[in-house]
């Protein structure tokens, strides 16, 4: 098979070998731990929000290259973006993964997905889709938790005033 058809695009291998944003944040608003029983993949992810943005995201994990590379790509894309943009991107990536190899994305959406588009080939392998989604799902729940705890903090400070 030709290299361009491979599920293992060079971008994926590069991120697997040299992952970004790997490490534990010392200051964070939420921490989540997600596992994918198919491959035994694991990701522990922390986020810190500031002014409605994902100010920092750090993750550690182990498992197959698809799960680890996808988490690295995701982290590059969402750090510094607003929470709503990050969640919107997560939705697009989910759509891509559920497309079974036939994504219906606009030029604009493809642009937004950036390096994450390299995972398109994974969508043809239902057993591996969970691997690619692992970090994205972790990010989504971490952001939800951080947002909820920020809201309850501000609610309690307001109540205290």
């Amino acid at each position: 098979m030709s290299v361009t058809d491979s599920m293992y695009q060079q971008i994926i291998l590069d991120h697997y070998k040299h992952p970004n944003n790997r490490g534990e944040l010392s200051q964070f608003d939420a921490e989540v731990h997600h596992v994918n029983p198919t491959c035994g993949d694991e990701v522990t992810l922390r986020v810190r929000l500031a002014d409605g943005e994902i100010a920092e995201l750090g993750w550690v994990g182990e498992g197959c290259s698809i799960s680890q590379a996808s988490t690295s790509v995701m982290s590059d894309l969402v750090v510094g973006s607003s929470v709503s943009d990050a969640l919107e991107l997560q939705e697009k990536f989910l759509q891509l993964m559920q497309s079974q190899g036939h994504p219906d994305l606009s030029e604009e959406e493809i642009d937004a997905l950036d390096d994450a588009i390299a995972f398109e080939g994974v969508s043809q392998y239902p057993a591996r889709v969970k691997c690619a989604l692992l970090g994205w799902m972790a990010m989504k729940s971490a952001v939800a938790e951080a947002t909820a705890s920020a809201e309850s903090r501000s609610a309690s400070t307001q109540a205290g005033e």
Binding site: D5, M7, Y8, C64, S65, R128, C131
Partner: peptide, 14 residues
């Protein structure tokens, strides 16, 4: 250093 699922997936491509 290489997960068995990556090994088998790549072998499938071959």
């Amino acid at each position: 250093g290489i997960h068995p699922h990556d090994v088998s997936q790549l072998l499938d491509e071959f």
